[in-house]
């Protein structure tokens, strides 16, 4: 009973923090309201005995939000602590879309005849997730990883203003000329 109440309370926190993202007037507050929402969801997943997935959600989402806050503030180009701003635009269309999608999903949840549980969770859940991801799905994982790394490296390479010719000269032969030399003496 107590567990169920805590679970529902976390759900309420997640929903309210999610709503706060659109009602607060600063980028920093919006970002960390979203982080709080994710933390509540992560704790809920931990309560569902999926400890690995739950703590992973906490880890990834807090890290993501900490970095995202920097980018949000950077691209807004002003100090939202000094100049409050609205977090929403196209209010009617987005409210309508969100409301109808939410209603459809709630209807789906209520109307679906949920099947009874068959079988029981394996004793070592973390190991089971690992086996599931890295045994039969190994090929997919091994393909996705290099694609993701290539995307990141490609994105950074495209975004950088200075190319390797700026750094090493036209023949790529002189020592690197960086405005900010790095810590290992390059």
């Amino acid at each position: 009973m107590l567990v169920a109440i805590a679970f529902l309370a976390l759900g309420v926190v997640a929903a309210l923090a999610g709503a706060a993202v659109f009602t607060v007037s600063s980028m920093a507050r919006a970002t960390y309201a979203l982080a709080l929402s994710f933390v509540a969801v992560g704790l809920q997943v931990v309560m569902l005995s999926q400890n690995f997935v739950g703590v992973m959600i906490l880890l990834m989402m807090m890290m993501e939000m900490a970095v995202m806050a920097v980018f949000m503030v950077m691209f807004m180009g002003m100090n939202p602590a000094l100049m409050p701003m609205s977090m929403v635009h196209g209010k009617r269309a987005s409210l309508g879309t969100a409301g109808s999608v939410c209603a459809a999903m709630v209807l789906g949840i209520v109307l679906t005849p949920w099947p009874a549980r068959r079988g029981a969770p394996p004793p070592e859940l973390t190991a089971a997730i690992g086996r599931e991801l890295l045994e039969s799905k190994m090929l997919a994982m091994a393909t996705i990883s290099p694609v993701m790394v290539a995307t990141i490296v490609g994105g950074v390479a495209l975004a950088l203003r200075r190319t390797r010719y700026d750094r090493y000269g036209d023949d790529l032969e002189r020592p690197a000329d960086d405005p900010q030399p790095g810590g290992v003496g390059r």
Partner: peptide, 15 residues
């Protein structure tokens, strides 16, 4: 998953 938990709490320091 204590090791993972410790890592997650480290990120709380960032925030």
């Amino acid at each position: 998953v204590g090791v993972l938990w410790f890592n997650a709490m480290d990120v709380l320091v960032w925030a």
